[in-house]
C-alpha cells in the first residue's frame, strides 16, 4: 500500500488527467448500435416511405397509395389480415389455455419444463421445414389424411379441407403461434400470486369469479401485447406460405415477394406503397395494443 499513486482511477488520477485525453467509451460503445439501427432499420424504412409517394419521374404523388385500392391488392391484404388475425387469436387463446393448464392446473413439474423447452423449439420451427411437415401430415398423401380415409373412412379433402386454403394455412401457422404465446405469457401467469386466488376464495368468490374479476383482468395487457406480436409475426410471414403453395396463394407477402423478384405489379412505387401498407397495419396492431393496454394498466407502475 506504499505506492498508492500507482493505483489508477484514484481521485488525484482522474482530477489531474486532462479531460480530452479520456477515451469517450460511452459514445464509442453505443455508436455501432446507432449506426446499425440507422443503416438497417431507419433508412430502409424511410426509403420505402419516400418511394411510396414518388412516381416514375421522381415527382411527389398519391397515385401509388390510390393504387392500393385495386381489387387484387385489397383482397391480398384482406386474406393476410384474416389469416394473421385468426392464427393470432386462436394461437393466443389456445396458448393461454395450455399455459394455465400446465401452471395453474398443477400438472407435474417435469411436464412443465418439457412444454417450455418444446415451445422454444416449435416457436422457431417456422418457415420452410414447417410447411414440409404439414404437407407430410395433412397434404393429400399425408399420414393423417391417409389414416382418416383408410381407418375412419373420412375423406378430408372431399369434405372441403385444403391445406393450401385459409384454414389450412391458419392451422399450420398455429404450430409456431401457440408456442410463442406460451413462452411469452408464462411469466405473466407465473406472476399471478397464489394468495390472490386464496384471498378471493376467502371472500366467497368461486374459481370462475376469481378469473372473471382478478385473474383475467391482470393477464389482459400481457395477452393483448402478445396478440399484437403474434399478429405481426403471421402477417409478415412468407416462407411457410411460399413453400406450401408457391405463388398461388394471394396473400400480401407473396404479392410483395413477387414484386421484389420481378416487378410483378409493374410499378415500383406501388410495391413501396404495398410495403408501407404492411408497416401501417402491423403498427396499427401495436398502437391498438398500446392504447388498450394503457387503459387496462392504470393499476401498474
Amino acid at each position: 500500500m506504499d505506492d498508492i499513486e500507482a493505483w489508477p482511477g484514484t481521485m488525484t488520477d482522474t482530477n489531474t488527467a486532462p479531460h480530452s485525453r479520456r477515451i469517450p467509451w460511452d459514445a464509442l460503445a453505443v455508436a455501432p448500435f446507432i449506426v446499425f439501427a440507422v443503416m438497417f432499420l431507419f433508412l430502409p424504412t424511410l426509403s420505402l416511405i419516400g418511394a411510396a409517394f414518388t412516381d416514375r419521374q421522381g415527382h411527389f404523388t398519391f397515385d401509388n397509395i390510390v393504387g392500393l385500392g385495386a381489387g387484387q391488392i385489397v383482397s391480398a391484404y384482406w386474406i393476410s389480415i384474416r389469416i394473421s388475425g385468426a392464427s393470432a387469436l386462436l394461437g393466443a387463446l389456445i396458448g393461454l389455455a395450455i399455459t394455465l393448464a400446465i401452471i395453474r392446473g398443477r400438472l407435474p413439474a417435469p411436464l412443465r419444463s418439457a412444454v417450455m423447452t418444446f415451445s422454444g423449439v416449435a416457436s422457431n420451427f417456422a418457415g420452410v421445414p414447417l410447411a414440409f411437415a404439414f404437407i407430410a401430415t395433412l397434404g393429400r398423401l399425408g399420414l393423417v389424411t391417409i389414416i382418416l380415409r383408410t381407418v375412419f373412412g373420412f375423406d378430408l379433402y372431399r369434405s372441403g379441407f385444403n391445406l393450401l386454403s385459409f384454414w389450412g394455412l391458419t392451422l399450420t401457422y398455429l404450430y409456431f403461434q401457440i408456442p410463442l404465446m406460451i413462452l411469452i405469457i408464462a411469466p405473466a401467469v407465473d406472476g399471478l400470486k397464489k394468495e390472490w386466488s386464496e384471498a378471493a376464495q376467502m371472500l366467497g368468490a368461486s374459481p370462475w369469479q376469481f378469473w372473471r374479476y382478478i385473474g383475467l383482468p391482470i393477464l389482459w395487457p400481457s395477452f393483448l401485447g402478445t396478440l399484437s406480436l403474434l399478429f405481426a409475426n403471421a402477417f409478415g410471414a412468407i416462407a411457410t406460405a411460399w413453400a406450401l403453395t408457391g405463388s398461388n396463394l394471394n396473400i400480401v407477402t407473396v404479392l410483395l415477394y413477387n414484386q421484389i423478384r420481378g416487378d410483378a405489379l409493374q410499378n415500383p412505387g406501388l410495391g413501396a406503397a404495398l410495403a408501407l401498407g404492411m408497416i401501417l397495419i402491423t403498427s396499427l396492431a401495436n398502437i391498438i395494443y398500446l392504447v388498450v393496454a394503457n387503459r387496462a394498466e392504470r393499476w401498474m407502475k
Binding site: F40, L41, L43, P44, T45, S47, L48, A232, F235, G236, I238, T253, L256, Y257, I260, G271, A272, A275, M278, I279, T282, S283, N286
Partner: peptide, 10 residues
C-alpha cells in the same frame, strides 16, 4: 413490427 420482407425490400 416491420416484416423482414419489407426490410429486405428497403
Amino acid at each position: 413490427v416491420i416484416p423482414a420482407l419489407v426490410l429486405v425490400y428497403g
